[in-house]
């Protein structure tokens, strides 16, 4: 037999007890008591990059590839892999992007998800390229918040140890 878990009226105290023993009883404002427990679970997500594969393989080879609409009257160029044009819907082809550009907009994140917490504060930038119709969202390193401005020239850096992720590329000030 397990002894009855302790009762709390504040949910914060319930959570502390759960951290300690795995179970607690919560009494709400109406005096109703509920048993509270914990059930952890985690997931490994395995997926292909399908038609975006060449983009991520490109990053691992130090190349930044975008997409250009095949329709002669459109020819819109995206800074991201887009199998079909987001303007007209026609199929696209791969195109090499410039590795220098300018900051279109930016922010400095003082908080992030777990994967980025060690890097905070880190900068995000929307980079614009000559001859390209859309922007590329990247991390901007080697610069602090007070350095950043709209129009700032930046250049691409590729991770020498690629993980086949968008984080394989980042930008730095092009001084």
């Amino acid at each position: 037999m397990r002894p009855r878990p302790p009762t709390f009226t504040k949910f914060r105290d319930v959570q502390a007890e759960i951290d300690r023993s795995g179970a607690a009883i919560f009494r709400d404002a109406d005096g109703v008591e509920s048993l509270v427990i914990r059930y952890p679970y985690s997931i490994n997500y395995i997926h292909s990059y399908a038609e975006d594969s060449a983009f991520f393989l490109g990053l691992s080879e130090g190349k930044l590839r975008g997409s250009r609409c095949r329709r002669p009257k459109c020819r819109f160029v995206f800074a991201t892999p887009r199998g079909n044009c987001m303007v007209c819907g026609a199929p696209t082809e791969w195109v090499d992007l410039p590795t220098v550009g300018r900051v279109h907009s930016w922010t400095t994140c003082h908080f992030g998800s777990e994967a980025f917490l060690k890097e905070t504060p880190y900068n995000l930038a929307m980079v614009e390229f000559d001859g390209v119709g859309s922007l590329l969202l990247v991390r901007l390193k080697d610069a602090v918040e007070s350095d950043l401005y709209v129009g700032m020239p930046v250049r691409a850096v590729f991770d020498p140890n690629p993980k086949y992720s968008i984080t394989d590329i980042w930008f730095v000030p092009d001084r």
């Binding site: 994140c109 994967a115 968008i166």
Partner: peptide, 8 residues
């Protein structure tokens, strides 16, 4: 995966 949060 690039570190973009909604506040960001």
């Amino acid at each position: 995966k690039n570190g973009a949060t909604f506040p960001g």
